[in-house]
Design a protein around this nucleic acid. Sequence first.
DNA 1: AACGACAGCAACCGCCGACAC
DNA 2: AGTGTCGGCGGTTGCTGTCGT
Length: 544
Amino acid sequence: MSIDTEDGPLSNEELESQLIGDESSRGITSGIVLKKGPWTSAEDAILIDYVKKHGEGNWNAVQKHSGLFRCGKSCRLRWANHLRPNLKKGAFTEEEERLIIELHAKMGNKWARMAAHLPGRTDNEIKNYWNTRIKRRQRAGLPLYPPEACLQALLESQSQDPSRVNSRGTGYNEPNMYNISDVMFHSMPAARGSLPYFPEPPGMSSDNVLLEALALTRRTNFTSSQPPKRSCGLRSHVCGSDVIVKKELRSFEPVQDDPKVNESLELFFPDDRDNHLSLGETQDSHSFVNGNFSTPKPACEAVKSELPSFQYPDTYSSNWDASYSASPLLDPIDSNIHGETPNGTVHSECSSPRNSGLLDALLYEARAISGVKNQLSKKSSHSSAVTLSESAGESGPKFCETEIGNYSEPMSPFGSTTSIYGGSELTAANGTLLDSHPFKETYFGCKLKSEPADNVSNPVEENSPNRFDFSEPGLPFYSDWLEQESGFIMEEASLEEGAGEAFVGNDSINDFRYMGSALTGQGWGNCSYVWKSMPTVRQVCKFP
DNA sequence: AACGACAGCAACCGCCGACAC
DNA sequence: AGTGTCGGCGGTTGCTGTCGT
């Protein structure tokens, strides 16, 4: 046998030595001595050659047929992480890092799923990166997630259909919403004196689920430090009124002694001003600083990269119990939300978010409120939204919900408030049409009407944030603007069959929003779609 | 130069689900 | 239905290089 390696051709002796290894690196399986430890270039060459000939899979056969003294698992790992083509080596780019953070905020430690969003990256790489990041940020006393990610996760949380039950029958499908607070609020001794980001109060309705959740906690203190620059329409339906959650996220500054604090808090809690505390007060045990949840007790032990939902050190339990009183209305939901782990062991320590960190509770409340309100009062739709789901039946897969944004703020990306009417209307699953135009595509009860491409009279400008780049077919479709403004991360999207046709998919959140440009009867216009409770992985929106 | 702390990375291990029998 | 095998995934460990003291 003669193998050419990166280091040149090997003699038989060298080859044998490289393949078998020394005694310390061998393991015995079924009488066969299997090598462990680092792979040599000779082994790599053999494995590459084998895969070229036989393809991937059937890894246990590699050892039998190739002469490699490695177990199948080892071969698979080596191939997947190092040898397969199109692997991207080197440091993560900023974009990749940002994506990882957001994906982790949404998915938790689902490295393989995250890797699917990062072409050329492996789950192992991402995992290593994340673990390193955890250590780094812990040491620096920084929250693991930037505020943006927290808010996004919260928004996704509040937009989920609470009636949907996951495969384990435990409630929400989203695997890891609550882990954000797991990592944010533990063991963060430093960085006091600044405040977590939060959307600006002005212009926000108290009906916002987020604020409701916050109001429920009543002990929380936060504000934002700057006036709003712009607002954009991520609209929340959960509470039945028109809510715009601003997504202009900025770093926050120390405002502990800021006289504006109380004013801001009043804006947050218009009906509850007697109950809020001023910043810096230490009544009760919690202060909310820089995204960290601190307690007067000693800092907790090191944070695991992903604590299962509601897994918290006992440190917090007494404090939380003492300061929190949950609405009885929410109790039935409670049992649904717990259940992240099949064996239930993680809940032994802390079985309720009431025992957890603050943001955890906020998310919990937000979701609970969202669920209750969605179920009880979905009828009160906000003024500018056309909610079609209501007319389409009560259960089962469905609905399209069309939002006609009223985005008139000067800084809005929807600055030109061209209506989407006439361009990309939707119909309900029951076939109710809004007009008589032919629909080009129908998927899952959603029908998107489109106009011939030559009707494009007002294409979105080249550098407009409303314009998506569809120029790289097959590559993950990801728009900074969309992500920032909608608060949702696309699970999967790619261009297929020509410009203007975007396949967008989502298998982990059941509320997908698209805001951007669509060809309308009057040309390109701005639009906002919301797909509610879509049970399938892939939805399609099609533009001419 | 020696040492320790740390980061980065590769690889292993155990568990679990899918599948075939 | 029960069992065994295989592949995938996530957690963990150990090695190596770098940097600061």
